[in-house]
Design a protein around this nucleic acid. Structure first.
Lengths: 209, 209, 209, 209
DNA sequence: TGATAAACGAGACGGTACGTCGTGTCTTTGT
DNA sequence: ACAAAGACACGACGTACCGTCTCGTTTATCA
């Protein structure tokens, strides 16, 4: 019987929100980032392309980056829904090295996919300089993926394939972060060989056995 | 026998360039980025603060990022000149792990130094989305530092502390990239413990010995 | 039956135009021309003084001269509205010479009025070198005034005070143009004596009777 | 034995002035005004076209209008020198009306000559708004021509063709000023018929005889 | 099933910054 | 010492977007 009173004064009523506009804005934002790049993507441009008033964007989002982050999350959800169910849990064949190499090779492919590249680069860049957005980017996009590595490493630890005293959240960075840095900062080529090597180095260490 | 190269169309005459203006622009750019942040730093603002005409900036640099990159490089050179000689070669005490931990701890300190943080974050962010600038950022700032790790790892290999078949350029990423990613993307806290752990994991591997 | 004419590419919607801004721009333009002169009057200065964005000027006018012309026309309309009704038809007492002398003396006064002098000089100057504007200046400001002389001369012709074969549109130039030239080009002093003389010379000719 | 000390401090030494540059500047100024119009003619443009440093212009002239005025005067002198001797005294056949009509027809032709039109329009326009230049324009260009009419009218007065009490300096304006105004302000077409009519009206008056 | 109030498209508005052009001064480098 | 060349501080240009603010016009609950 409780009425739905809105907290902040004059907050927009989400129930009356136009779904059609929301989706058109996502499409326009992603298309523009891909076509003209993030810096030349403007709120006005998104509104025009989506056939939407500027105010409709300002009403529901706080910034260009905000729009793009939601658009990109939505894109990911669509892709997941299309693909079937679980996004892509890491396989567990019992061979940790092989499993990791396989997943990283898939990541290499994804990093080369232009559909994902433009928006995720844009969001990453914005996040570097805008901590608030950066943390949301990490929490909503990055961390869930990393958690899959944590799970797989924990399973490996239980199987005795990884030392018991290893912190999996740190361990995963040994092969994920180098790939991330090469992609973000153009510090080196991104190939299957490279990620395979990372896994080997990380699992067996640099020192002689 | 004279070789007067490439007079590109109406290139300015560097010999007549005002040193005073160049330095004032560096100062203004760094100060503004530190004070108001990179996105709110404008060419107009830099010019005003430096007591310089806008055209003097446009004559010598092609963009805000370009100015900042040079300013930051100059800052590094000044710092190096002030510090004495060699920037900071990695020590070689014979104990590879200890040496790496020491250097990474110094890096942790640097990453927390606000003087370096604002401009280098700004440049990194710009580089993520602007490949041309990103590559220059890497070539002029990052790679020289990474080369020091390559040298130290090669020395360790000669001493038998590192496996002979290890590629040092890749190996260094095992402890450098995780730190870089945590800093760039706020994926985790940056502490001495963390970097110490990275070195241990990287050198001895994740699997039981 | 509706006739919605010519939607030129992205023409602004005049119905939503800000009256307040329009008037503030007129005021600012006239004030600046009077205070600092036409060449030092800038669009930027007008916008600042009117408390208006530059784009609001560029949206509705095509040039500084265009703004000033409209402002001056508006000023004239205001003055007319304030004065009562008819702008200033030429009196018709039956004595043509006296009537013309009286009107020209009033014109002499007007030419010395600093409120009118600055903008009308500016517009005249611009019109000399910019035919399009010049023609509008004439059509909207000059010609209506000249028409009054045509009317008075026609009345005089009907009364037999002027030869029947005289073209009044040319005839009026005999006393109007000399005054205009002295004013525009500083070719001589502008006094009641002078205009009285012009009327006498024009009406009775230079040759002996 | 007196040395040639210059009066004002650091006034340029006219004796060492480059004749070649002076003429190149005249040519460039006239050409640019004809080609791109007065407002788009710039000091920089003149200097570049003349193959001259900007300072060379600023050293000898005080403004763009100043350059053009001198250039135009020089052009007139050249034309006069080419034509022979006297610029163009008004003929004196004894028939005042015919003589005036002839001269005014020649003026009509001149006003249609594009070589003279662009610069003289530019100078007239500048003079309207810049009194100092306007007076020089009149004194150096206009008044000498008008003086010829004064002379012819005086001669007519002596011959009894013009009333003795007529002031020739004012009288000439009856036919000269209307032509000037039509040309300057586009207030009407400029034809032989028109100037012929002006002479008739002016000489014999508008009232019945 | 209307009434009514919110979200909507459209876009004008006051601003800020853009990157360019021209000004008039100053300095450098030949003559 | 004048001249060509052109860098400089400055100021205005005309444009692009920003984020805010009306305007009618849908549209989607509720009386």
């Amino acid at each position: 019987m409780a009425h739905q009173h809105s907290a902040s004064p004059s907050a927009p009523d989400a129930a009356r929100r136009s779904e059609r506009s929301r989706l058109a804005i996502y499409d326009a934002a992603l298309a523009l980032v891909a076509e003209v790049g993030y810096p030349k993507t403007t709120i006005e441009g998104i509104a025009a392309r989506a056939g939407v008033g500027k105010q409709t964007i300002y009403r529901w989002w706080s910034s260009k980056a905000d729009v793009l982050l939601e658009a990109f999350l939505d894109l990911g959800e669509q892709a997941a829904r299309a693909a079937g169910q679980e996004p892509h849990a890491i396989p567990d064949t019992g061979d940790l090295a092989a499993d990791l190499k396989q997943v990283l090779r898939a990541t290499v492919d994804e990093l080369h996919d232009p559909v994902f590249e433009a928006p995720s680069r844009a969001l990453a860049a914005e996040g570097v300089v805008n901590e608030e957005l950066g943390r949301r980017f990490v929490a909503q996009l990055l961390e869930p993926s990393l958690q899959l590595y944590v799970d797989r490493l924990r399973s490996a630890r239980d199987a005795g394939d990884v030392r018991a005293d290893i912190d999996p959240r740190i361990a995963l960075e040994l092969f994920v972060s180098p790939l991330a840095q090469r992609w973000l900062q153009y510090t080196g080529p991104i190939t299957y060989d490279y990620t395979d090597t990372l896994v080997d180095y990380a699992l067996y260490g640099l020192t002689p056995r």
